[in-house]
Write a protein that binds this DNA or RNA. Sequence first.
RNA 1: GCCGCCAUAGCUCAGUCGGUAGAGCGGCUGAUUUGUAAUCAGCAGGUCGGGAGUUCAAUCCUCUCUGGCGGCUCCA
Length: 638
Amino acid sequence: MPDPTSIRVRFPDGKEESVPGGTAARDALGRWDPEQLKNAIAASWNGVPVDLASRLTSDGTLAPLTFEDRAGRDILQHSSAHLVAKGLLETIPDARPTHGPPTDEGFYYDFDVRPLTPADLDSVRAAMDRSIRAKEPFVRRELSRQEAEKFFSGNPHKLRYISEVPEGETVSVYDTGTFTDLCRGPHVPSTAWLEGVHILGFSAIGQEDPAIPPLQRIRGVGFPTRTELDAYLKMRKEAEARDHRTLGAKLELFTFIEEAPGFPIWLPNGMVVVHELEKFVREHLAAAGYVEIRTPLLFPQSVYETSGHWDHYRADMFLTELEGRTFGWKPMNCPGSMLMFRSRARSYRELPMRLAEFAPLHRYEASGTLHGLTRVREFVQDDAHIFVTEEQVEPEVRTLLAWIEKAFSTFRLSWNVELSTRPAKFLGEAELWDRAEATLERVLKASGVKYRISPGEGSFYAPKIDIHVRDSLGRPWQTGTIQVDYQMPLRFGLAYQGPDGQLHTPVVVHRTILGTWERFLGVLLEHTAGRLPPWLAPMQVRVLPVTDRNAPAAVGLVEELRSQGLRAEAAGTEESLSKRVRSAEVERVPYVVVLGDKEVAEGTVALRVRGSKENRPFSRPEFLVYVSERVRTRSFDP
RNA sequence: GCCGCCAUAGCUCAGUCGGUAGAGCGGCUGAUUUGUAAUCAGCAGGUCGGGAGUUCAAUCCUCUCUGGCGGCUCCA
């Protein structure tokens, strides 16, 4: 029944329209701007997402929601999830849908159903295609609680959601063809909008209680058009070619063997890269007043009892029985640093005391979580522990954050910051945690960086600022971290004598910049597709003599390059020049030099820079300066 | 660790409706002496991931173990 009175609707550009009460959002938008309506997935009514079919009954502001808006994107993902559920129910009628939310990547829908098979998915896809072709509308209906409970009486999950709908709020369902799902909405107008939907895969979702059978999750992603989906799939395919696990093997950087899962074997090329990363970090350590230490890889149980690892981290440790005692392979460097600090009396004059340690760490990571270099059981962090007074905490953290920013920009990596706060199981007093968290947050706010709070994700001894970078498929990996720790110094009984002659407990800032060589390099390889900056490249210059006549000149040039600390080698002439150029490009060598009769006679080189087909003539001295400068300044591009 | 999927030559992959396997690249050898992304020819290389079962016969079917992949949980 249309409302006879007219209402005022305001649009994003400030225009206002008078429309009859009860006008559909779609029609109101159409009167405002038919072009904008075309791309509208749904509408935003007074800031709340609504269906295009919803009727406006009061004055308010109305805006189109498109795929470009996060809310619009989420609506399309969520509608895609409904379509998957419809498809699954047509495949397995007794499947019980639970919930199907949008995610950062796309969407998923969890089902209470027998384990799925790839054939099920084929059937689901076919059903989805049928629905899309039929352009089935999403129709909203509002039900009484009793009606809803009756309708979903066979599905305990939906009954639970119904019971969670706040009193006084209406219970709504959406019909799509023969499929009806409990849903708050809104949705796209019809399945015709879902032509760009794609199922990415399925997996079982374990429940907290192992007695409850796992749910089956179907994951997917939706786009407004088939074209956009194809572009996304192409991007994913290209991302697969950048997988660091493949590149690591191709470029002979590292390998894994079946007998030792999660334990990287660094090949000579990989060691070159790791050493360059170490050099990069150590240069800064020297400039920033750090000293480097080395503490044992194994400690007896008692040390971990003191640090808190025994109670909070034992399940993640490799343990060794010897002399009737239990030793643990260190999963972190902090206990060693604490013992180092405690090894003699300390004065406030020594603070901040910045102790760096690059030691191999072992963590007994669950087998199912291992992943190339980004999740391993043995790794080395660019770690340091900074012992400070209470007043020194904040400036120290500020300096570290700035350094992280600078370091990551060297590698042109974009990063996200999270503030991870006190977990459920934590050491010590909540009051000290609050203080540490407040300090971290103050620094973050003052620095102006965007950050997200990750509640309960702090480590067991300290809250932390975490740096995340994404791999080629968009999966986030934590790398750098800054942690303000009041607990371990107390537990180890650390003290320094202050200017007042009294003993005080220091605060410890645990921090890494790049995180670990392993994970950092894994992510960097994916970002660069293996085309590491020249300073990191295992082989920096390859010299190609055109014929055997030019081989002595090539060897001479290589010697000259090596004497300047550059990594260079001459190729033989068994293969065609084209083939050797190709090999160098495939092996991601940043600088390829061709030496033929012409160059030898003129004392020049023909330089081919990685990624470029043109070759630039250089005099030999110019070339040497050019390459060594690019390397010395750690240029990202060759 | 949980769930699903996968495992054939160093790598990428064919193949065998159960009768013990093939290509390209890579490697080695020889010829070729090359001007900027693959010169030609020949050769070697696999108890078809390990173990057990079914069968006259298993790389193929079943079970199990190991590893990998994708999720989940967890993390640098």
